[in-house]
């Protein structure tokens, strides 16, 4: 899974948030299936050349939120799918949609036109 992750230290988001979001995407998108093992924190950190504490913070949050599960003495795995996760599919788009709406407002494009635009592009 390491090859699916990359971080950009110059982006507006802190690295732990970028990691969190990308792993959630991998789970929701199906690249990581239930029961899949995650590489160790140190391995991920080495691969991305970031502080292991940052990685461990992201993983910790994912465990807290039920995306991953950690058992004593075992590697971290992807947890069982719950309904809450499927909702996440939509929540993951919020940020991109928010940006789109903001730009539309700046350009004075009304909501109806935007919906139509999305529809048009979707069918492309």
């Amino acid at each position: 899974m390491l090859e699916f992750i990359n971080v950009n230290p110059n982006s507006g988001d802190p690295i732990y948030k970028q990691l969190h979001e990308q792993i959630v995407r991998l789970i929701v998108g199906g690249q990581l299936a239930t029961g899949d093992e995650l590489p160790s924190v140190r391995k991920i950190a080495d691969h991305l050349a970031v502080n292991p504490m940052t990685v461990s913070r992201a993983i910790g949050q994912l465990v807290d939120q039920g995306w991953l599960e950690r058992r004593r003495g075992q590697a971290t795995r992807v947890a069982q799918k719950t309904t809450q996760k499927t909702d996440q599919q939509e929540t993951l788009l919020f940020k991109a949609i928010d940006q789109l709406i903001q730009q539309a407002q700046q350009l004075d494009v009304p909501q109806s036109t935007l919906s139509e635009l999305i529809k048009k592009r979707w069918e492309l």
């Binding site: 971080v7 230290p9 690295i15 050349a49 970031v50 502080n51 504490m53 940052t54």
Partner: peptide
């Protein structure tokens, strides 16, 4: 070099 600090620093 801010990108280095961003990666390394706790």
């Amino acid at each position: 070099i801010t990108s280095d600090i961003e990666r390394v620093a706790s």
